[in-house]
Design a protein around this nucleic acid. Sequence first.
DNA 1: CTGAAAGCGCTAACAA
DNA 2: TTGTTAGCGCTTTCAG
Lengths: 347, 347
Amino acid sequence: MKTSQKQTIYDIARETGTSPSTVSAALNGRWKERRISKETAGRIIELARRMDYSVNRQARGLRTARSGLVGLILPEHDNRFFSDLSQSFTLEARRRSQCPVIIATQRDPAAEESTVQDLMAYSIDALFIAGAADPLRISRICRSANLPHVFIDQPCPDAPSVITDNEAGARALTEAILDSMPTGATPARDRIILIGGDARLHASARRIEGFRKAVVAHTGRCDPEQIIACGYEPDRALDEMHSLYRRMGGLPAGLFANSINVFEALLRFFAHLPEAELLSTSIGCFDFEPYGELLRFPVHMIRQRHRKLVSRAWELMEEGTEGPVLVTVNPELRRARDGAARAGGSA
Amino acid sequence: MKTSQKQTIYDIARETGTSPSTVSAALNGRWKERRISKETAGRIIELARRMDYSVNRQARGLRTARSGLVGLILPEHDNRFFSDLSQSFTLEARRRSQCPVIIATQRDPAAEESTVQDLMAYSIDALFIAGAADPLRISRICRSANLPHVFIDQPCPDAPSVITDNEAGARALTEAILDSMPTGATPARDRIILIGGDARLHASARRIEGFRKAVVAHTGRCDPEQIIACGYEPDRALDEMHSLYRRMGGLPAGLFANSINVFEALLRFFAHLPEAELLSTSIGCFDFEPYGELLRFPVHMIRQRHRKLVSRAWELMEEGTEGPVLVTVNPELRRARDGAARAGGSA
DNA sequence: CTGAAAGCGCTAACAA
DNA sequence: TTGTTAGCGCTTTCAG
């Protein structure tokens, strides 16, 4: 068995009768400015390829105080939005010949902090943070270590952030629901209801605002009872749905689910209703899951533009932005393909 | 602004009036075997904490030829199973104070190979590979660099692998479907059909085998027409479903979808059927998506045990396994909560 | 019980 | 056009 002792630039230097620094420059493509002859460079590169040499990045990193690693911190992998982010992030990183290091911290502030420290110990070149429990703290740590960082999908009061335009998204979703609301509901049921979310949170607050504006524009008014910001807990939402149904004597003509969890609670509730009843209401969800398009009744959805969020974040990074800059990205409205599903449902 | 020049063990040595090697040992918990006085060690550790020193891992890695990084290569993040793997992998890595580096390579063999090289340049301590396009090639590269590696969810002919027991899973799923198959279907429709998958692939082949065995055990025979291994393409599956429906004059009494893609094709097909008809068939899917439990008709599902797959893989790693060892893990059968959904569907 | 010193593989400043 | 050399921050003999 060939033990294949790891090759270094010294080996290459020896073999080509040159010196380590020449080899280094040649292999980094920096041979032009070092005015190394094309011929020497070629010889070096060729030999390196033949013995398939590859740099020791820890050594290079130690020397240059960089690493080629870029971090992304997120709450969990097991979530459609965050795995979309991971995907986009990976692509953007590789486009720049950086190595993505994506770490999930389970929404645990302590884990977040220690992960940041860990990554810093590896001299990562930049850090992106999505959905941290304690953004301010993280930003403070990064800042004091001079580590460039950008928040994604979450505004940090003192660092560059790129987030979805929740208000615009909510407005668009609300309008889509209103547009496809069935006519002829009893007066009690003839209105649109928003359910879920926490009004104290930035994202929810903007969404509620967008909802309200769209409803007012359409109806002239929006009653407080049309907004049930009961949090993100599915069970809680299910309860609220039950009592709403009782109060109204049926489903409201329009329903705005303020997150995928809430939407799933609705689905559980719907399981106990005859299918025909579902078709007499218009439904929207502020979140995206592909299976929404597979249901037997039409659902409008809002999908965050993960690619754009990520690419904007990289741009902020590369521009060297430091202060509290807030960039917003419009989400995408995925309108239910109306006819098809309703027809299918009743066929 | 405090430029906070990065602190080193030399700084600590100077401050505590000790030497770098002593500091190093103290901070690594190796002070006992170096017989450093508890008092000195304490002083060092305390100071390090106060100035919140953290090692430069590139320096350490350069010296020790290790890094504390462990790689996981997978096809894509945006997939429930793989993001479950990522989640479990992260946890197992952190449990061992290793830093997980998870990279998606889009099922591109070239990307796989260059990613492996990249990771090796960082002196990763181990590599796990899930769903690579060219396992043999990867294993060869790792082997020649002496990099411990284990395959997950995919058998590699010359490296340790841990995979799901597809045959057992298929048998269990088939039995579940048979158990809940409605009685009284017309003779033509009174059978179970497997749809999807590619018989040439290891996984599919095992599943088909399990299906066949269960059917034979139950019915005494299993006709070739009961197995429609038409690949994993949803569109293709949809076509097959259409012609099956025409041939049989309705849905078969039992349906085994050989992957989530195929299952989604079935859902599209079902959208054109009256709900009552769905309730006259028993459905199973060899794959798991939580929304399956939210549908208005019952679906049995097979879920891979991602945690166990990952932990077994780590075990193989830690035991220093090298040869072609194959470990199998039983998947989990998620039986449809029968009564509820059917009741809900017809309420 | 502790310190001195070498060296991991690389890059960059300085010499030639 | 190229080589020499110092040094990044750490761990690990080896010497006391």
